[in-house]
Amino acid sequence: MLALFYILAAISVVSALIVVSARNPVNSVISLVVCFLSIAGHYILLNAQFLAMVHVIVYTGAIMVLFLFVIMLLNLNTATEPMKSLGMRVAAVTGGGLLFITLAAAIRHGVAIAATNAFDPGVGLVKTVGHVLFTEFLLPFEVSSVLFLSAIVGVVMLARKEKHQPDAPVEPLTEAERARRTA
C-alpha cells in the first residue's frame, strides 16, 4: 500500500513539474492529464470512490478537453514563448520552495487533530456522499446551478464577436488644439 502511494505520488510530482517547465503547451496539457489521473488514483487509495469518478469525468474529461480545444483554436501548438527574465525565474523557484518549506515546518510536529466522528470506512461511497449532499448541502447544490447559468451567460457575452460599427477614425490632436485644451 505504502509503495503504491509513493509511486502515485512520484507520478503526480513529476508530471506537475513537467506542466510547469514544458515548452510546448500541448505537452503541458498532456502532463496535467497524467497528474490528474494520478490524483484520481490517490482518491481511490483513500476510498473516495465518488470523488475519483467525478474527478476523472469532470476534470480530465471536460476541463482538460476544453483546454485542448482552446489551444487548438488559438493555434498555439507550435508556439514557443520567450522565457521570463532570470531574476524572475529564480524568484519563482525560490518563492515556491520557501512556501513549501514554511508549510512543511508548520506540520513538523505532526498533524494531530481529534477526530470528531467514529471511524467509518464507508465515507466516500456514493451513497454516503449523496446522502450528505442532498440533505445538508441541498441549497448550495441548487444555487450552483445559478452559478453555472451566470458562467454560461458570461462566457457567451465575453467571447462573442462584436458587431458594432467601428468608431470614426481618431486623428491625433494638432498642436494648437492641444495647447488650447491644456491652457
Binding site: I113, A115, N117, A118, F119, V123, V129, H131, V132, E136
Partner: peptide
C-alpha cells in the same frame, strides 16, 4: 477523520 462533508 470520517467526515463526508469534506468530500461534498
Amino acid at each position: 477523520h470520517s467526515d463526508p462533508c469534506a468530500q461534498v
